[in-house]
Design a binder for these strands. Structure first.
Lengths: 374, 374
DNA sequence: CCGCAAAATGTAAACGTTTACATTCGAGGG
DNA sequence: CCCTCGAATGTAAACGTTTACATTTTGCGG
């Protein structure tokens, strides 16, 4: 009945030591094994005994030591998430989706930003090694070399918005979304549609650009090249691009920005120049970030369910963790939805179609809107 | 030379077990104690030995098991952060500040949202117990009872934006900031200044309201009550409030929203009603969230350095962790800065002062701008 | 009442570190 | 050559769980 452990506790009686499973066992008059069994609820324990143990734990306010538990079962019930920046609507929304999904399964999340720097990313990943059972890595900007490396080193990894074909990954249907938006604009009567690009290294930005170009080619549009503008996903770059477009010799009738932040910048630039949206020129974005509906005019955009992205990433990671043997990698693609608001209308040069597109617009609001898989 | 451990490893030779400190010790021809000493760099070890150990660790790609380490030293080198929502510009910015500060000290951060629900918050905190060495809790919305409870239970805690006087806490100078903004508006010539309130339970919102009311009393303004509008910090509530104010019988000449999100909503409502800002009415916000400068017109607001909030919170928590004995609690207050943009101007009814305030405005842009401590 | 499964519980060995304490080693003073 | 005293290193006991295996209890047919 008196274990070595008990002796120790007795000796140190007046040291403030946390309650352990041994204390609970002693109080309930059973062994530590039984306490463990009751608390983890896996194995057979008599109802009566179970009650006593629970009561003892309750009274002593017993909280299991997670470090000891992790050491014993060799899992931490924690996943890591590495983001380029822990910053901005988009990332925080991803975290939220992950947090929700993870908590529902009793997992915790360890967060870290990497400043879009490959070296720093590897460092962060290394620091998480052992602390987490798996990793969700979002690295749209960097080349894939470092990612591949970390995948080989034991830990399950799910990539987010990173164009990899060899690892588990979740991506957004950027290409399909961009094409859907172009269809919408074309349907309104636009053919001179400008595009504000995202960062060149960014996988999402590339795909959106690809969708835009494909659509433009299909529309047999005039001088393609001239209609594209550089950008880097920030409001500021959108503002600059907007300024350039406003000053352009033959102004486009619509501007499609590769993300909402830049679209907001474009709107600000047009407002500053006194160019009316959507009367003089239509503006569209991508992502449907929260403020999109509160700018003037409200922004037409492709919605991405970001939290869903996080949720799915967790599901996929959990899957990889559980059947931890190496398995064929999985790729998922999340759809986007057209959200029609006030920033796009028929071009001024086509007053005759002015009502026609508006009807179409109303119809689409409820009916259409599903992005399609790539 | 052959420890029990070695025997085990030999028996299991072909099981894929991770490299342990024993393997490194064996390879370097020293004991585990020496390896530990070298790797933690605290104690005296001969340079020669140290090199050998480091080499062995390098070759074997040894990564210490954090769970075992935590168990042994009874610290996790991790801090937890509990937010009302893991969502939105504000929160993500706090996380970023914390992440940066924590990583610099070799700490990790465990993140969780609590949906502003006290019960869920306690649950989250409980789940973090043992996993973290301390906690940063941001709970502006809830009553303090649960917070007090968790503070007593062993773990060091730093409160963020929560009006507690008995725990370590960091707050924003909401009162001083609100008064500074009121001074600015008054300086432009406004006396009929409306206010869009935040959530009633929210500590920040309350202080901002208090600052507004104090200022209004000082200005001997007309019918105070009628100029306040309900809100809950969301764009939508700002939009609704804006609609009400637009329709009001005697419209205010300026609207001060308790945060930027609501100010953006107010702007959207005024735009929808065709009311010109700032010509017909001025609009001001609080926080200086990133889009503030990209709405039309750019928003005049009180800037809060949110990342700094996170940084300071970590510093304070680390301090509490290190000198873990109970110490007198510390309160810090971070200042706010007036940021003048285009959304505020002199009221139309005072054309004669029209230039005068504008000069003042220019002057303030560079000169003034420090919020003051409360 | 015996014998015997099955069910319930107990015992003690892991898990991989850190670290108090013990031991060994070398050098210098006598 | 012996002692002494640091410095360098080794030994083994924690840290608090989980769980394979051993042991006891229980229920029940004979």
């Amino acid at each position: 009945m008196t274990s070595r452990r008990d002796v120790r506790r007795t000796r140190r009686r007046n040291t403030a030591t946390a309650i352990t499973i041994h204390d609970v066992a002693a109080r309930a008059g059973v062994s530590v094994a039984t306490v463990s069994r009751v608390l983890n609820g896996k194995q057979l324990v008599r109802e009566e005994t179970s009650r006593q143990v629970r009561a003892a734990a309750e009274i002593l306010r017993y909280v299991p030591n997670v470090a000891a538990r992790s050491l014993s079962i060799r899992r931490s019930q924690t996943i890591g998430i590495v983001l380029p920046e822990v910053h901005g609507e988009f990332f925080s929304e991803v975290i939220r989706g992950l947090d929700l999904a993870a908590r529902a399964q009793g997992y915790h999340i360890l967060v870290s930003g990497s400043h879009s720097d490959p070296a720093e990313m590897l460092e962060v990943v290394d620091a998480m090694r052992g602390r987490v059972d798996g990793l969700v890595v979002m690295a749209p900007d960097v080349t894939l070399a470092p990612l591949e490396e970390l995948r080989t080193r034991d830990m399950p990894v799910v990539l987010l918005n990173s164009s990899s074909s060899s690892a588990d990954a979740i991506t957004i249907d950027n290409y399909g979304g961009a094409r859907a938006m172009m269809r919408h604009l074309h349907g309104l009567g636009h053919t001179r549609i400008a595009f504000v690009r995202g960062p060149q290294q960014n996988a999402d930005a590339r795909e959106r650009l690809r969708g835009y170009r494909h659509a433009m080619r299909g529309m047999a549009a005039s001088s393609l090249r001239a209609l594209e503008c550089g950008g880097d996903f920030t409001e500021e770059s959108g503002f600059i691009a907007g300024g350039k477009l406003a000053a352009a010799s033959s102004r486009p009738t619509a501007v499609f920005a590769a993300n909402d932040s830049m679209a907001v910048g474009v709107l600000a630039a047009f407002a500053a120049e006194g160019i009316k949206v959507p009367e003089a020129v239509s503006v569209a974005g991508f992502d449907d970030i929260p403020i999109a509906r509160y700018v003037a005019p409200p922004l037409t955009t492709m919605r991405v369910d970001i939290a869903e992205l996080g949720r799915r990433a967790f599901a996929m990671l959990l899957d990889a963790i559980l059947r931890s043997a190496s398995h064929p990698s999985v790729q998922e693609n999340v759809a986007t939805t057209l959200v029609v608001r006030g920033s796009c209308a028929a071009p001024a040069s086509l007053p005759n179609v002015n009502t026609q597109p508006h009807r179409a617009l109303r119809g689409r609001k409820s009916g259409l809107g599903k992005g399609e898989g790539s």
